[in-house]
Write a protein that binds this DNA or RNA. Structure first.
Lengths: 154, 154
DNA sequence: AGATAATACTTAACATGTTAAATTTATCTG
DNA sequence: CAGATAAATTTAACATGTTAAGTATTATCT
């Protein structure tokens, strides 16, 4: 079905048949469905991701938040500034460990999430209807396995 | 095996069990293996992607290149400036259509690709050995289906 | 042919990605 | 307990992502 280049020695794969590009293209294809909603409400993809994570986990330190939202620490610092200025998050210092920054959603932030949740869920359902729930589930499982395989093992 | 949240109404999925984040995490996990090599040779991930595509397709216009490398036009404009200044690519105007910019690898650019190819291929093989060739192949197939399902249909 | 729309880029402006260095606070060692 | 180390962020600098606006060139339409 798919042309498999014979890669006996140390040659490069066809770019389109490569994990980095394939994963990037897949993500772009999915995000194309969400971008209109985010743009309409003036939040970037990353800001929304941070708020989604905070909505799930409550109050957490910056490192944990960065890891969960797949955002690097320096980016998170800037994003926090933006979200705090907009009144969507509350930032404080950890009294137990003065190095840590603690963050949580503000009431306004929670309302914002609730306001967009239905439209966001509908978009995801639209995507599911095109791909199929089982297929998405399988893909997510495959990715989980990939992550386990690539991390923490020899 | 995996906890499936009951999502009868219009609620948000668990972030970690969502296509945008899962695909992003997978990509990051893979790129972590390549970044040291790229950093060692002072090329960014995107610059390398552009050169990889050019190596495959020869001389092409900017739009095609941008699409193949998953890079937006404005980013490509800047990347071209960088790569041209470094002598890795040659840029020219399409005589048949004055709007188009044509690009191809320079001899120096081709040599650069050849120099990094073995190490890059070894890294990919390392990744394959951890995940398994068939599993990767399956994943790539699943992604192709996802791309077809999401594009150009109703 | 001439006005108009469509293409293909390019610029501009702001947000984020990425790495390295700096800062502040904790922890560890002797 | 003082000095060295480590940990958690932040800052800085440059590259790219992203959208909107601007430019030049080509295609279209009457």
């Amino acid at each position: 079905m798919t042309k498999q280049p014979s890669r006996a020695g140390l040659e490069l794969s066809q770019t389109q048949r490569t994990l980095p590009i394939a994963l990037l293209r897949a993500r772009e294809a999915v995000m194309d469905y969400f971008r209109p909603l985010l743009a309409e409400h003036d939040v970037t993809e990353q800001q929304w991701r941070v708020m989604r994570v905070l909505d799930e986990v409550g109050t957490v330190d910056a490192s944990f938040l960065a890891r969960q939202a797949c955002i690097l620490a320096p980016s998170l610092t800037r994003i926090m500034r933006t979200l705090e200025a907009r009144g969507f998050v509350e930032v404080s210092r950890d009294t137990a460990d003065g190095r840590r920054t603690l963050v949580c959603l503000s009431e306004e932030g929670r309302q914002f999430i609730r306001k967009l949740a239905p439209a966001s869920a509908r978009i995801y359902q639209d995507i599911e209807s095109k791909i199929g729930c089982e297929r998405i589930s399988t893909l997510l499982d495959e990715i989980e396995i990939l992550l386990e395989s690539l991390s923490s093992e020899s």
